[in-house]
Computed example of a mutant assay.
Amino acid sequence: MDSAVSDLLAPVEDDNVQPWQNDRSRAPIATKIVVAGGFGVGKTTFVGTVSEITPLRTEALMTRASEETDDLTATPGKLSTTVAMDFGRITLDDDLVLYLFGTPGQQRFWFMWDDLVRGAIGVVVLADTRRLKDCFPALDYVESCGLPYAVAVNHFEGTPAYEAEDVREALSIPADIPVVIMDARKRITVVESLLALLRHALDVTPE
């Protein structure tokens, strides 16, 4: 066999390569998860924190033209916004691969949501306790689609801490829907949010 071809077929030595990727007898279980929520709630950070690949981001600079439609009160330092989607990948449980798709938060880009949720097993809806009303459109959307979902409350520094059950009551979230308190900058809490959604999706999916 040509040496160049042999080099291409040889296992790749890379810290980011998972065991199943070098085992040709196995195929990964690929799962799509959507991360939704209001403007500036932390969706881009959520995806980037856990992605084992360089996340794909479609961001544009904020301009004065958006001042009348985008409330920057809670996020005065925000300079850019997602205009299409965020994309990342994380491998769990050896060969379970999650593909994460973050939705744009601005209302004028919500038409993208119909495409992003296609084929997804569920949605993580991010919430910010300073602006809980901003997550209602995402909650209404996933409920109308009939998709399993979990609510992840992104706790920002310097804001009051709330219990998950307090947020559940404020948002009128049904008792069977997972509600978790997390920090989108901390990998372990983001993973816990994804696992909460996966467990819920498995519970409600018919066998």
Rank of each mutant, 00 (worst) to 15 (best):
M1E: 14
M1T: 12
L8V: 07
L9V: 05
E13Y: 15
D15W: 12
N16S: 15
V17I: 14
P19F: 03
R24V: 10
S25D: 05
S25Q: 08
I29S: 13
I29D: 12
I33A: 11
V34D: 01
A36D: 10
A36N: 06
F39I: 11
F39A: 04
G40R: 05
V41H: 11
T44N: 05
T44W: 08
T45N: 07
F46A: 00
V47Q: 01
V47K: 00
V50K: 11
P55S: 13
E59W: 08
L61K: 09
M62Y: 10
R64E: 15
E67P: 02
E68N: 10
D70T: 10
L72Q: 14
V83A: 03
F87T: 02
F87I: 02
D94S: 09
D95R: 15
Y99E: 01
L100T: 01
F101N: 02
T103A: 02
T103M: 03
Q106A: 08
W110G: 05
D114T: 13
D115G: 12
R118C: 13
R118L: 15
G119D: 04
A120Y: 08
G122D: 11
V124T: 02
A127F: 10
D128Y: 01
D128C: 00
R130P: 02
D134S: 14
F136M: 11
F136P: 01
L139W: 06
D140V: 03
Y149C: 05
A150L: 11
V151H: 13
H155S: 13
A161L: 08
A164Q: 07
A170F: 08
I173V: 15
A175K: 10
V179L: 11
R187G: 04
I188V: 12
V190L: 07
V191Q: 10
E192L: 09
S193N: 08
L198K: 12
D203V: 06
